[in-house]
């Protein structure tokens, strides 16, 4: 991954992702925060593309940039107007050293660890591999996830039904 294209792409996408994530917490309007969240998700999808994970990248766009923000928007619509301010809270100052410590821990671990470097092979087909894995090796988590989603849908319907 040393060619200039990949390097430029990586740093651009990283800047986009991290920058949007910072704007999510920094901006005042809650709906603007959702928009920056979408941008951040799209950045992550770009990084997946950089890692040759095509299925994951498109699934990221489909689920995270397409469906989750709708969910968040509906949640925002249901909150009363006064609580829609993404402004400062009193927890901002105590959280700063905590987050700083967490960030320092993660950076030091990332720098100190001896990462095994994978060679960059061909662009193999990931979709069929993921599909077969989901239905053979990981079939139990797959089924449990489906049942969980079914339970969530049924719960939502029961909650909103007028008797």
């Amino acid at each position: 991954m040393d060619d200039s294209g990949s390097v430029v792409a990586f740093w651009t996408l990283a800047a986009l992702t991290v920058g949007s994530a910072l704007m999510v917490v920094a901006v005042r309007n809650l709906v603007h925060a959702v928009v920056y969240l979408i941008l951040s998700f799209v950045g992550v999808a770009g990084i997946f593309v950089l890692l040759s994970a095509d299925f994951l990248a498109v699934a990221q766009v489909l689920i995270y940039a397409g469906a989750i923000p709708v969910l968040i928007i509906f949640a925002i619509m249901l909150t009363p107007r006064a609580a829609r301010d993404n402004a400062e809270t009193s927890l901002g100052l105590p959280a700063l050293p905590l987050v700083g410590a967490l960030l320092a821990t993660i950076i030091s671990i990332a720098v100190v660890t001896d990462w095994p470097e994978a060679t960059r092979g061909g662009f193999e087909e990931t979709t069929s591999v993921i599909g077969e894995a989901l239905l053979s090796t990981y079939v139990l988590p797959f089924e449990i996830a489906s049942v969980l989603l079914l339970a969530a849908m049924l719960g939502a319907i029961i909650l909103v039904r007028e008797d």
Partner: peptide
């Protein structure tokens, strides 16, 4: 990809 881009239309 087509489906994913279509879902961005919603937001």
């Amino acid at each position: 990809f087509v489906i994913a881009i279509g879902s961005i239309n919603t937001i």
